[in-house]
Design a protein around this nucleic acid. Structure first.
Length: 694
DNA sequence: TAGCAAGAGTTT
DNA sequence: AAACTCTTGCTA
């Protein structure tokens, strides 16, 4: 592949490094307006073509070599459609889609996406959920603060080539979003719901029915702390709370309903916990510090991705993991990131190698501490399902001196990943191309049938051999359930098959109604405009400070997302409506109107509710000093409300709204028929975090 | 039982 | 921020 790169934000050519290419040498792409240094192009255009030149990113697909140079013709064809004033927007979209569908069918043989089915799903949403770059149905949608939606891959390709403005409206994209774009969960679940309603195959539908990606922890830990000292030192010093599942510590594979007498659901993909200790209590990943759970002689059961090793590389469905060790941690140097010696295949690294050789299923959890991945949760620790280690090897780490152990993890779970809109789990996929393998030593891969494999007949992943027998006793405070105690899951898991049910996917996290004027914050959470802005109505964006009669520099006030507590104050300064979501909501409401007029009335806009919310005085409630007192009560509160705690937002009727700020507190906002989300809040809403990314 | 571990709160 | 300190759980 030719190493064609554009000029960066400062106008510096990323190939030759020349600071300010002269106007003569500067070429601007006629499609995306990105500047390029003409002498550094592998295939520069003739002078006569410079005005209509399309850059290598727009005219071809550099990451999909199977797509031939026909890209230029495609762009020309798309432009011809755009220029045709006789066509309506819908017709233009339809024609663009047709052209691009032809290309995808030819260039991506391993892509099992059925284009006509995709088209159906697009139609359900009035074609609003198509990516502005690839024109296809949004895949892992991310939303810019200006309210435009793109596939994550398209967005990354766009920004990695130096663009820092929205591809649709040219407004600047915040640095933080360029670094770590967040998946828009509302769009993901809406598309999935639409797929489910199209899917008449009960087996496929059943495999992921009810896979919620924000599962409330109905049962709070019974005993998270055991000693007085632990209470003083916070959770870091806490001994483990009760283990709720009946799996042995060396249990391989998913945690099923039969291992979960408390809830009878098992650990589902997308389940999120506040921290590693809570994750441990549900058996997904037992060690509370270490990233790898396993035994060198038998294999590894689970890993955590939490950003501790800079060599890691996360692509969602597959990732490259780094082994542990190689660091000098003597003398309580817990945080030493520097490598002091080579990693070798011993201890946990050997356990992972064993799982690789035998093709064992490995549970994967991602932590919010992983700051370089779009697939990491915003908060807490999330279970992402089963992966298999397809290969492992050693190579010099990015620090450049010592070797690290490397593992290629590929997802193979029967439930879809939290970031995809797929209505089914994984299918066997070809291994990704790993360039670093050519410099690798000690390459291992399994040479026999994997223990965890895909059954083509049944269409699901399962044990191909008997799972390895446990060598450890079950540690749990609960006896395994008896036949009498075993309750069947009281869930109908009925998926939406009409516009009104689909509308439920667009609920505002504040008023629980279908969103009116939807806003998507950079963290990926969506709200009614009135609800979100109403929540901060009485707050100014900066605090004037004075000291001894002098006026000091104004301090920015942090405003946290009501759902995930990310600072969204920059977004709130100029929030833009997500028009695509709004169009979809309106079109679904129109469809609903024509079918059942009476029912449609119940899907009211949230603005009225938001009006009520504004009655609550946020600033007074936000006084940090209130929290200390409040804190001692928090556990009691949680217990008293059947595990469904609503912190801050009192109830659905909107009597009171306040930000979530209980120290270490976890709250669940949920309704019986609406989506539920766990939210964690910190006590220092306005105390810390007064620095912002610029 | 020593030593390690991709944690977390507090202090500097 | 980084350093320091406090811990527990697990492997070997």
């Amino acid at each position: 592949m030719a190493a064609d790169l554009p000029c960066d934000d400062a106008g510096v050519c990323m190939v030759c490094g020349v600071a300010a290419p002269s106007e003569v040498d500067l070429l601007r792409c006629s499609t995306c307006a990105t500047p390029w240094h003409s002498p550094c192009l592998s295939n520069p255009p003739a002078l006569s073509e410079a005005a209509i030149w399309s850059c290598p990113d727009c005219s071809g697909d550099p990451v999909a070599p199977a797509a031939p140079a026909a890209g230029g013709e495609l762009v020309a064809a798309v432009r011809a459609i755009e220029a045709d004033t006789t066509l309506s927007d819908a017709e233009k979209a339809r024609r663009r889609q047709n052209i691009l569908a032809g290309r995808s069918a030819a260039s991506a043989p391993d892509d099992d996406v059925d284009d006509s089915a995709e088209d159906d799903v697009l139609n359900i949403f009035g074609r609003s959920f198509s990516c502005a770059f690839c024109m296809k149905l949004l895949d892992r949608p991310v939303t810019t603060p200006c309210g435009h939606n793109f596939c994550l891959k398209c967005f990354n390709r766009w920004t990695h080539n130096g663009a820092s403005a929205c591809g649709k409206c040219r407004r600047p994209i915040p640095y933080k979003m360029v670094q770590q774009p967040r998946i828009n969960s509302a769009i993901v679940s809406a598309i999935r719901a639409a797929r489910m309603s199209k899917n008449t195959n009960p087996a496929a539908a059943g495999s992921s029915a009810g896979s919620h990606h924000y599962i409330q922890n109905v049962d709070r830990p019974d005993r998270a702390y055991t000693t007085e000292r632990a209470k003083r030192g916070g959770k870091a010093n806490a001994s483990s709370g009760q283990i709720f599942v009946t799996t042995a510590p060396d249990h391989f594979g998913p945690i099923l309903a039969e291992h979960d007498p408390r809830r009878n659901t098992g650990v589902r993909v997308g389940e999120t916990w506040e921290d590693r200790l809570e994750c441990r209590q549900w058996g997904a990943h037992l060690p509370h510090i270490a990233g790898i759970a396993g035994q060198s002689r038998f294999g590894a059961q689970s890993v955590a991705l939490s950003g501790g090793y800079e060599d890691d590389e996360d692509h969602g469905e597959w990732f490259l993991y780094t082994g542990s060790g190689g660091r000098d941690l003597s003398g309580n140097k817990r945080t030493n990131k520097e490598q002091g010696f080579d990693q070798t295949f011993v201890k946990m690294n050997e356990a992972l190698r064993q799982s690789c050789l035998r093709g064992y299923p490995v549970r994967v959890v991602r932590s919010h501490k992983e700051k370089r991945s779009s697939y990491a949760p915003e908060l807490g620790v999330r279970y992402d399902g089963i992966y298999r280690i397809e290969k492992c090897w050693r190579k010099i780490g990015v620090q450049g001196t010592f070797k690290v152990c490397r593992y290629l993890f590929v997802r193979c779970d029967n439930e879809p990943a939290p970031w995809t809109s797929d209505d089914h789990g994984d299918r066997p996929r070809p291994l990704p191309n790993i360039p670093e393998l050519k410099d690798a030593t000690d390459i291992n891969e399994r040479d026999e049938r994997p223990s965890w494999g895909y059954d083509e007949k049944e269409g699901r992943w399962k044990w191909m051999y008997e799972p390895p027998t446990s060598r450890k006793p079950v540690r749990t405070g609960l006896r395994p359930k008896t036949g009498k105690q075993a309750r069947k899951r009281a869930r109908s898991d009925e998926m939406p098959n009409d516009p009104e049910k689909l509308l439920n996917e667009f609920s505002c996290c504040i008023c629980f109604q279908v969103m009116a004027e939807p806003l998507t914050a950079p963290c990926g959470d969506s709200f009614c405009k009135a609800c979100l802005l109403g929540a901060y109505d009485n707050q100014s964006s900066v605090r004037e400070r004075s000291h001894g009669g002098r006026t000091l520099r104004a301090q920015k006030i942090v405003k946290r997302c009501p759902s995930c507590a990310t600072d969204i104050s920059d977004f709130l300064a100029d929030p833009q409506i997500n028009r695509d979501i709004m169009d979809v909501i309106e079109s679904l409401q129109r469809k609903g109107d024509t079918t059942t007029k009476d029912d449609a009335a119940s899907y009211g806009y949230g603005a009225d509710k938001a009006e009520e919310f504004r009655g609550g005085d946020l600033q007074e409630e936000a006084d940090p000093e209130m929290d200390a007192e409040d804190n001692s009560e928090s556990d009691t509160d949680a217990d008293a409300s059947c595990g469904r705690t609503v912190v801050g937002i009192k109830d659905q009727e909107g009597q009171q709204l306040q930000p979530q700020k209980r120290k270490g507190g976890v709250a669940i906002i949920g309704t019986d028929d609406g989506p539920s989300k766990r939210i964690t809040a910190s006590a220092d809403v306005e105390q810390k975090g007064n620095k912002s990314h610029e």
